[in-house]
Design a protein around this nucleic acid. Structure first.
Length: 423
DNA sequence: TCTGGGGTCCTAGGACCC
DNA sequence: TCTGGGGTCCTAGGACCC
């Protein structure tokens, strides 16, 4: 019989800030998305004030002011560092750790002897001591049940951070009844609405619904979710491809712009970042898409997305080649003075491992890390920090610069920002 | 005035072929 | 009036995840 544990960090981004700034403990804290757009992480105190995931900041600014909420810009360098430390511990201490997101990891605990809940409590304590992050763990026969247990572990005072549905199968029905359909992993807002209209409101009712009906309402993915709720594993870890299929870099702008040169500057910068990312993973891209979009929230003007794709003459991760292709594509699709754009991005697709590119007589060989210039840039950026060497404008001077007015120090990645302890 | 970014998979529909 | 059936491939868009 299978058993999975899902461990995740409670309020990850807020908790990362608290590691380095203890004054944030017991206070309402939120972290804003890029461009200081909306709340993407909230401490429990902030959740208690009614601040929801994804709330636009300008709509809750007054509430935050009134309740003295600490509002921070996001600092992904910090989160990635603490995530890496946490995942390294899990890889060392847990059998078969499979990272799922920046703050979540599935553990296959099928063969583990003894009381799983006791073992998980030890794991939590280790991460708390070594990294300083609070975690929760759910245990179930399938990943979907582990997710569900994890969610309840967070809510229950008595659970002590761990809920084990494998050791206590008699708790499953109660756990499913307590979980709204919308909160089941794999059921989104659209499916939840559809199900609610037919009387299926909680996870227990969903589990006991009829297969063919589910298949018709929710498709093949929905049926897999229901089987998982019944304890039949359907999420196959082995079916995951070895490397990613695409790579995006996009940003919202601090101010809208309709100028070709501004969009071009942004695309040049994004193309550089995207190329660096895939070089890092030893991939090359076979094609790319460039896009720019107007503000999708405005109701008083028409929306528009400019989007254009091209194949690269030969699969590459060379920044200069990718920039050249991206600018050519943008310029070809550009219409002067037509729209005010608030966001742009680049998408690299047809990714292949650099040493697995099919070659034929008439295609020049791919050039992944081959270029000396790229190697030099990458090592400069690794040694002196991201963005030390790049093509195009420095972001601070660009017209599309994102807002980031509440930035915290780079505690773990900049010597001058390192916290000093006095004893 | 101000609304994130980065992924995956599935499905429907059109083009094309025999 | 009547005007096949069944593949494949590609793309756009939806839904979902964190």
């Amino acid at each position: 019989m299978t058993a999975f544990a899902l461990i995740d960090v409670n309020n990850m981004f807020v908790s990362c800030h608290r590691v380095f700034d203890p004054s944030l403990h017991r206070r309402p804290v939120i972290v804003l998305s890029s461009n200081d757009g909306c709340a993407i992480a909230r401490s429990n105190e902030a959740k208690a004030l009614g601040i929801k995931m994804g709330n636009p900041f300008f709509k809750i600014a007054a509430l935050c002011e009134r309740h003295d909420v600490v509002v921070l810009s996001s600092n992904f360098g910090l989160y990635c560092d603490l995530s890496t430390r946490t995942m390294a511990i899990l890889a060392a201490l847990a059998p078969s750790a499979e990272q799922y997101s920046i703050d979540e990891c599935f553990l296959d605990v099928s063969g583990l002897p003894g009381d799983l809940a006791v073992w998980c409590r030890g794991l939590r304590a280790t991460i708390d001591r070594w990294v300083g992050l609070p975690t929760s763990i759910g245990i179930g026969r399938t990943r979907t049940l582990a997710k569900l247990a994890n969610r309840l572990a967070k809510k229950s005072e008595r659970a002590g951070g761990v809920l084990d549905l494998v050791g206590h199968p008699d708790w499953i029905d109660a756990a499913l009844t307590k979980t709204a359909v919308r909160d089941v992993w794999g059921i989104g807002a659209a499916s939840a609405d559809k199900l609610a209209g037919r009387g299926v409101t909680d996870a227990l009712k969903l589990r006991d619904a009829e297969d063919s009906w589910i298949r018709k309402q929710l498709g093949i993915g929905g049926l897999k979710t229901v089987l998982e709720l019944r304890g039949i594993p359907c999420h196959d870890a082995d079916s995951q491809p070895i490397h990613r299929q695409s790579c995006t870099v996009s940003r919202s702008f601090g101010h809208p712009t309709g100028r070709h040169d501004d969009i071009r500057d942004a695309v040049v910068s994004f193309a550089g970042k995207a190329a660096e990312k895939i070089r890092d993973e030893r991939l090359v891209a076979g094609a790319l898409t460039v896009y720019a979009a107007t503000n999708r929230f405005r109701t008083d003007v028409a929306h528009h997305t400019l989007s254009a794709s091209a194949r690269l003459p030969t699969p590459t991760a060379d920044t200069q080649r990718i920039i050249r292709a991206a600018v050519a594509v943008l310029t070809r699709a550009w219409e002067d003075g037509a729209w005010e754009y608030t966001k742009a991005g680049i998408l690299l697709t047809d990714l292949v491992a650099e040493d697995a590119v099919p070659c034929d007589l008439f295609t020049p060989p791919p050039d992944g890390r081959a270029s000396g210039l790229m190697r030099a840039m990458d090592s400069l950026n690794r040694r002196f920090g991201r963005g030390t060497a790049s093509f195009g404008l420095v972001p601070e001077e660009a017209a599309w610069k994102s807002r980031q007015e509440r930035k915290t120090p780079d505690y773990t990645s900049r010597w001058s920002d390192m916290p000093v302890a006095e004893a």
